[in-house]
Design a protein around this nucleic acid. Structure first.
Lengths: 113, 113
DNA sequence: GCTATATTTCGATTATTCTGGAAATACTGG
DNA sequence: CCAGTATTTCCAGAATAATCGAAATATAGC
């Protein structure tokens, strides 16, 4: 297993932090549900009942951590979950818990394929 | 799959938040490496070079989110990773990413048993 | 009980984050 | 180019979090 340097650990911490708030965790969940089409900002805000500017800040944070992606569609901005980043985060957590230390047994968490 | 209520989502958010800081993520990693024996507070502080009181706050937060456990050993306090909680968090993330939405393919993350 | 060690709690400072109204920007269709 | 809609940025306030020295607490051994 590759050794993790300080920057990488900090990055994972930032990703966890980005998911570490109820509104943002809800946003990610919602985008996963709507995957791969995603949703435009207005739909997210309406569904989760979050004011425009507040939502925009949350989306910005998630985007900065690369957990979601954005693409313009005319006057709309469509947001989608970034599956590779989530994959990476999941892989990190899995590696820490199961591979690196054998602290958690994989089979308890997942049933493969 | 059981439907997640607001309190549960908030709880997962809090767990992510607890891991969402570099010092605390390092602490969890260190305790996983030392699992199942764990480490006493002083050892953690020395290894990660964190002042007493700062460390104590971090440990308190992790303990509040049930990510670590503590037991007294004479004048020492031994901390251990709480594998069930980590298991649960890993399971949640897995379910969100892979089961619920099929956004991430399990085999990309893990190689089962 | 006193001393020594380990760790927490107190207290206070600084930094960061969350929130949301109002103004600005971006785009579309006429 | 103007009106209309979508969304962001600006700004500011309030709340929360991170930090750490110093004082307090807990335990052990003598």
């Amino acid at each position: 297993m590759a050794k993790l340097d300080s920057a990488q650990i900090a990055r994972y911490a930032d990703m966890f932090s980005a998911m570490g708030t109820e509104p943002r965790l809800r946003i990610v969940r919602l985008l996963l549900t709507a995957h791969p089409e995603g949703l435009v900002a207005g739909e997210i805000g309406e569904e989760l009942d979050i004011p425009n500017s507040t939502l925009s800040h949350h989306l910005d944070k998630l985007k900065n951590e690369d957990l979601i992606a954005m693409q313009r569609e005319g006057t709309f901005l469509r947001y989608t979950a970034n599956t590779s980043a989530l994959e990476e985060l999941l892989g990190f957590l899995y590696a820490e818990c199961c591979t690196r230390s054998n602290a958690v047994e994989p089979k308890k968490v997942l049933c493969c394929r």
